[in-house]
Nucleic acid binder design. Sequence first.
DNA 1: TTCTTGACTTGGACTTCGTCCATTGTAGGA
DNA 2: TCCTACAATGGACGAAGTCCAAGTCAAGAA
Lengths: 171, 171
Amino acid sequence: MDEVQVKNNVKVEVRAGGGAPALLPSPNRKQVAPMSDLLERLRARGWRMTSQRRVVAEVLDGEHVHLTADEVHARAVERLPEIARATVYNTLGELVSLGEVVELSTDGRAKRYDPNARHAHQHLVCVECGTIRDVHPDGDPLAVLPDSERYGFTVSKVDVTYRGLCPNCSA
Amino acid sequence: MDEVQVKNNVKVEVRAGGGAPALLPSPNRKQVAPMSDLLERLRARGWRMTSQRRVVAEVLDGEHVHLTADEVHARAVERLPEIARATVYNTLGELVSLGEVVELSTDGRAKRYDPNARHAHQHLVCVECGTIRDVHPDGDPLAVLPDSERYGFTVSKVDVTYRGLCPNCSA
DNA sequence: TTCTTGACTTGGACTTCGTCCATTGTAGGA
DNA sequence: TCCTACAATGGACGAAGTCCAAGTCAAGAA
Ligand SMILES: [Mn+2]
Ligand SMILES: [Mn+2]
Ligand SMILES: [Zn+2]
Ligand SMILES: [Zn+2]
């Protein structure tokens, strides 16, 4: 039988049976494994690997994209009950400066954190319910801005937010 | 013909002809006059014309674009010392719902209010100093989003923010 | 393994931006 | 001039985020 024990202040699933734990499908492998890439990258960048940072990274790596800092905190608390809000803010800020996470402010309310930073994309937002979808427009969005409209700026990125009604809210 | 001029919170009737004071260039005519269009439109929409609303409209009509609500309030206070912050927020909100002013949240901080709502345009923002410029990209920004990327949404507008360094901050 | 230390976390105070609401004031019509 | 529905006021409140002094601990050294 599997058992749960606490290690490094984090709940860890321990497989029954002797010998070294096989790195094979386990209940939470699907959730945790894809993150290992990120965790490795962070470690390589000199990050001190704490349980708090691990948990924040795991939350972001879920299928939940575009979470607010407080939503990340709420999910993190489920795994690590006493993680502080300030720590979540710190960690998110660090992930953003490292380019591992993208920060969105689509609605003038809470910023949202997007772990899909590898492939540039834009967002489609429902003005009614706030649903956000990733979209991939044709061509380079920067290309449509002629030099004559750049006023000497060095333009390095574009944020595009398409707004409208989602199928649900159209009804 | 009769003409109504507003000055110092008091309506003054200016009668054309016979010895009446001519409506000629005065120090603040240049500032106030262009707003009359907006004020007329608002009056036509059933707005009760208060000195507070007049002052907010006048502030927005200056050459100052993209002010925050508190910046609008600060400038309004210069003309009408006891105007309340809440009133500025109320008025800006109304102007936005009437489509007379556009609300921007380019930086996840305070929203900015843009009186240039007649001609659709986009914005170029310096990531260093926050300077904002209006830009007019080629073509319809909505056109670059293929139907296959709309997920059944009824897309009605696009907000585009180009980000980079202004000439000043490049040095 | 234990020790050491600077990086990290904590939690609460604080700031900023914005909303709410009971009370007071007034624009504009009768 | 008077009435009253609509608007302004200002202070409390709320949401989102930052800051900081004190405590904790990850990871390299020995
Ligand atoms: Mn995204
Ligand atoms: Mn503008
Ligand atoms: Zn919707
Ligand atoms: Zn600049």
